[in-house]
Computed example of a mutant assay.
Amino acid sequence: MRILGIESSCDETGIAIYDDEQGLLAHQLYSQVKVHADYGGVVPELASRDHVRKTIPLIEDAFKQADCGPEDLDGVAYTAGPGLVGALLVGSSIGRSLAYGWNVPAVAVHHMEGHLLAPMLDEDVPEFPFIALLVSGGHSMIVKVDGIGQYTILGESIDDAAGEAFDKTAKLLGLDYPGGPLLAKLAEKGEPEVYRFPRPMTDRPGLDMSFSGLKTFAANTINSEKDENGEISEQVKANIAHAFQTAVIDTLVIKCKRALKEHNIKRLVIAGGVSANVYLRETLQKVMTGMQGRVYYPRTEFCTDNGAMIAYAGMQRLKAKQYAPMDMRAKPRWPLDELEAI
Rank of each mutant, 00 (worst) to 15 (best):
G180L: 02
F197C: 11
R53G: 04
K168P: 12
I310S: 05
V43Y: 01
T251N: 08
K266G: 04
T55P: 02
L4I: 05
L134C: 09
D208K: 07
R204F: 03
T55E: 04
G41V: 06
T283V: 08
G23I: 06
K226C: 08
T304A: 09
H139L: 12
V52H: 09
R196I: 09
E21D: 13
G86D: 04
I56E: 10
I142P: 00
K319E: 14
Q316D: 08
M291A: 10
Q28G: 05
D20W: 01
K185A: 15
P325H: 09
G149V: 06
M201L: 15
D167I: 03
V125R: 14
L4Y: 01
D305T: 13
E234S: 14
V104A: 02
K185N: 10
L336H: 01
G213Q: 09
L252T: 05
D159P: 15
R196W: 00
D337P: 07
K266W: 01
M1W: 04
E188S: 12
G293L: 03
E191K: 15
T221C: 14
A37G: 03
G14T: 07
E156R: 12
I265V: 15
F244Q: 11
S9G: 05
A170E: 07
G273A: 11
K331V: 08
V33R: 04
T246L: 15
D67F: 00
T79K: 09
G83F: 02
G101P: 00
L175R: 02
G5Q: 11
A106S: 13
G163Y: 00
T221A: 14
A259W: 03
D11T: 03
Q28F: 06
K189Y: 06
P332K: 11
R53H: 09
D74A: 11
S224D: 11
V287P: 05
D159F: 03
A247G: 09
D38F: 02
M291W: 05
K321L: 08
D146Y: 04
L280W: 00
K168E: 13
K319N: 14
T300I: 14
K189C: 13
H139S: 08
E225P: 13
R333K: 12
D50L: 08
K215S: 07
L25W: 01
Q322W: 02
G23H: 02
L116S: 04
A80I: 14
D337R: 11
P105M: 03
G155E: 03
K261T: 11
T216N: 06
T13D: 03
I131T: 07
R204S: 12
V90T: 07
S210I: 05
E60C: 12
K319I: 11
Y18P: 04
E21R: 09
I270V: 14
V269D: 08
L260R: 04
R333H: 12
A238Y: 00
R299K: 13
Y30V: 15
S136Q: 08
G206L: 10
I15T: 03
S9F: 00
V76Y: 00
Y297A: 15
G137C: 05
I6D: 01
G149T: 04
Y323R: 03
A77N: 01
A341K: 15
S210R: 08
H36G: 08
T251R: 10
A241T: 05
I15R: 05
